[in-house]
Write a protein that binds this DNA or RNA. Structure first.
Lengths: 261, 261
DNA sequence: CGTCTCATTGAGCTATATCAACATCCGTGG
DNA sequence: CCACGGATGTTGATATAGCTCAATGAGACG
């Protein structure tokens, strides 16, 4: 549950890499890619295994190839906050990340690890890479700010609605099908992501369901169908697209709101 | 309350700039600096004025020279979350920041604005600059993650304690005196920063005061003395420095805890 | 000194946490 | 293939931290 599962020998992997044309790597040409290939190491993880680096090493950069990982941070008493979910093409920059951060696999996954120093050396030579890294950081930051707004100012229902829509758009971006949307986080993990408890997440799901906004695939409680994206978006507080009608509001009934099956 | 107060003509300002040796700018030599100088514009803001850019322009980058600004984001119904406080040397990267973000001055302040495109052009030529920008983004990201943990998982008292300590260390970094610490945010703004209400922030301050952890300078409720940094840090949930004793806990009494004056 | 804004304090209310019971899912071994 | 058992999810009952509404107090500024 702690040690890496498998370390493949480095070689010429990049050309066939699943994320060869995503984000950071897409900025490199074949020759540059070969350089990267030479210094990158590859690691597979089983669900729940976490990515640990030798304490001495400066935190390297890890690029996700397949699967999903979560980045979380804990308080000394165990309360934990999930900061982000990493998907193929995303990368984790151990840079200035404060201690206490854990990266662990949600599904079978594989990552490509590049020592920070080497990445820097490459980036110096290839501006496109540097630029791509910066773009990645910027979008990560934008995500963090959305998340901040959610945690600081949204109600449980709003957070969950926001979460679902965001997951859907991420899923689509990675090529997964959003209909139904597959949740790779358990209820407890969703709770830790949204700053709520498992129970609240669960209750909120049922309310959204009863209100007809979502539907779970029978027997597969990790598969959600988003039935009414618009109302969900209103609930999540999406700013109306500059020219929308009235102040619409979506309310969820507490009691036994018996809605569509 | 919305329009810029003053736009100074561009010239050779950089050499005498208050942040010439901070973060991003410190990575440039005199020649490079002159290039930057040529494309940068300068703007002063009075408290409450906000930094608005022409909608057409791609969000530029702004470097804070003097004063303090807050970066916040709002929900359509007005709830707002303060994401960050900018101090001299910090910069605001409008890059991928989602719409609805506002930057406004807390105190008299001045910023140096560089159109994004121009910064990029400069960065291409000077790797140190690119690197500095990246470092800045990384530390911003690390801050955002701390903030996320606070909003998602900490109690009001913990958030406030954490806030105070963080403010103190920032103040020191910028050369302000941390004894007493000057709060540049109003109670309401602190609330918006911490995801609480004004009342809760106020009550929490008095409890911390009654517990003897902090003290307000008489008559200057924006000046706090941190009397017991250690207990404050424990309250804020600082991870014990790897080798500390027992599980210490700090509790704040609700009732009329009459402690040191 | 008045007036206005900001901060503090009080009293109750509510969303969410907590505690607890149950249900469902899923892997394992018969 | 089914039965069992632990893990995960749902639902209910209650507690509570923090919110809301409301009144009072204190600084700032003309």
């Amino acid at each position: 549950m702690e040690t890496p599962f498998f370390i493949a020998p480095r070689g010429r992997r990049c050309p066939g890499c699943p994320v060869r044309n995503c984000t950071v790597c897409s900025s490199l040409d074949a020759v540059q890619l070969a350089e990267l290939d030479a210094v990158a190491s590859f690691r597979k993880l089983l669900p729940k295994q976490s990515l640990v680096f030798e304490d001495d090493l400066e935190m390297p950069v890890a690029n996700v190839l397949t699967g999903q990982l979560k980045v979380s941070r804990s308080l000394p008493d165990g309360r934990t906050q999930v900061m982000r979910v990493l998907r193929p093409g995303d990368f984790f920059d151990g840079g200035k990340i404060s201690a206490g951060v854990t990266v662990s696999a949600l599904t079978d996954s594989s990552v490509c690890i590049v020592p920070r120093e080497l990445l820097d050396r490459l980036a110096v030579k290839h501006r496109a890479l540097e630029r791509a890294v910066r773009a990645e950081l910027e979008s990560e930051l934008a995500d963090a700010q959305d998340h901040l707004l959610a945690l600081g100012r949204m109600t449980a229902a709003e957070r969950v609605a926001d979460f679902l829509l965001r997951e859907q758009s991420h899923a689509l971006k990675v090529g997964e099908n959003g209909h139904p949307l597959t949740l790779h986080l358990s209820r407890a993990e969703i709770a830790d992501y949204l700053g709520l408890t498992t129970e609240t997440v669960s209750r909120t799901f049922t309310r959204l369901k009863n209100a007809g906004l979502i539907r779970f695939e029978p027997g597969r409680l990790a598969r959600v169908h988003i039935r009414d994206p618009r109302r969900l978006a209103v609930l999540a507080g999406s700013h109306p697209p500059a020219g929308t009608r009235i102040e619409e509001t979506v309310t969820l009934s507490q009691g036994a709101g018996q809605a569509p099956t």
